[in-house]
Design a binder for these strands. Sequence first.
RNA 1: GGGGGUGUAACUCAGCGGUAGAGUAUCUGCCUUUUAAGCAGAGAGUCGACGGUUCAAAUCCGUCCACCCUCACCA
Length: 498
Amino acid sequence: MENINQLLAVKRQKLEKLKNIGVDPYPTRSARTHKIKVLIDNKDDYISSEEVVTITGRLKAMRRQGKVGFGNIADDSGNMQIFVKKEKVGEENYEVFKLLDLGDFVQIKGVCFVTQRGEFSIRAHVVTVLGKSLLPLPTVKEKIVDGKKQRFDEFTDIELRYRKRYLDLLLNPEVKQTFEIRAQIIKEIRSFLDEKGFMEVETPILQSLYGGANARPFITHHNTLNIDLYLRIALELYHKRLIVGGIERIFEIGKNFRNEGMDRTHNPEFTMLELYQAYADYNDMMNITEDMILHIAKKVFNKDVVIFGDTEISFKKPWKRASMTELIKEESGFNASNFDFEKIKKFCEDNGIEVEKTAGPGKLIEALFEKFVEPKLIQPTFVIDFPKEVSPLAKVKPGHPNLTERFELFINGNEYGNAFTELNDPVDQRERLEAQSKLREMGDTEANVVDEDFLEALEYGMPPTGGLGIGIDRLIMLFTNNTSIKEVILFPQMKPEE
RNA sequence: GGGGGUGUAACUCAGCGGUAGAGUAUCUGCCUUUUAAGCAGAGAGUCGACGGUUCAAAUCCGUCCACCCUCACCA
């Protein structure tokens, strides 16, 4: 505490000194003429023309030596050496330069040149303070060894990185790059869907009933209406209302909130893409999933593969499509396709899978799938034909009363997407939601609730529809080779300090 | 929730029963082409918190807190 007070006091003193010599440490205007990258990309031109340019940025390094000093400033395009000579800027301006600290925002007006050591630099005519910092930035130094950047005293404390993401972005360039890629991926999703005629929509986050997924919600309260409201756990039910309303292709990229455990693939708020297409089914959704992810890979990375850890994931079409019971048979040798509850139950128990009292054969089949199959699905795989029991919003597969036209996309052992041929029969939908409601009464806190308003919408008539949801954060983890969701969310949930 | 790990200066870390350490950053002095600038000097710490053992605790023990890893739970 003493120490930080001391560092802080020094910075405040410098602030006062600047004011005393008539310098505004927080001027209202700046006057940049060039971004740093522009100068670097056209070095030779700026050196030979001796054009007077003005750059701005944060002071990231300082090497003073008496009547001359070197520093580095960075804007969002690059980093450049500055050279300040007392003789050139004059006595008064050199005093200003001497009062600068690492972390301050500065403006340098001058001309480009190359130093004796061969570094492209700007020779200052005028040094201007744009924003004085009052807290010291952690210091990271870099040295180039054999052409490779070696970094010293890196800012690596994971907790600090997440809690003070602004410092993380400032000091760790690869972190900034991750979020640039995130933005590009989302932009490419939008442009892909726009191209295909999907309209972007926004639906309520505050909902008086929640649905569309099996999850526990966050609850909040609206004072004027004096009612409890839920933060949405999925986008699904409102999107279907829009399909009822005659919009044939819609999508939304937005936050969902689930009041559940947190780990390296779960954050309580996370970003979901959902899209719905009238007159389509789950086969169309598989095609669109393949095309969209391949589109991202090509547009953002100019490749049709991605390296995740030691594994090369290929997005080349077609991706494997296999039914859940087929895959279970392949991996465990057990045939569950006849939905024989007693046999399945016994096989589960023999394999150490806990059987909940509300579970029927469908739920057990899903449990077998998770145990035997999921971790083995490394290359993109559409797992199709889920049990009806665990798919209350999906349409039954013709000729297979226990199955639905539903798939989940697995890559690298993780789920990335979920899609169905949507259930548009209002009578069937009511029965399924009521069955969920019974499970709920028996203690399943994640079962769906009956949403009368949604059912009423279905009763007005919904066309045959395909729907798809993709977890955006996980997709970005895949493309940026990150194993923790906290690395792809700017401000991940943390416990408050103290 | 179970198991494992980490927490010491602003940053990165060493110390692991006997006076709290290093590099960077900061401050002072010298330095007109440096680049992890250099040289000389200085200041800077409730050793995560609270208890206990001990003549003596950053160090050993216990409880708690935060974060990380892992298993379980969960999309």
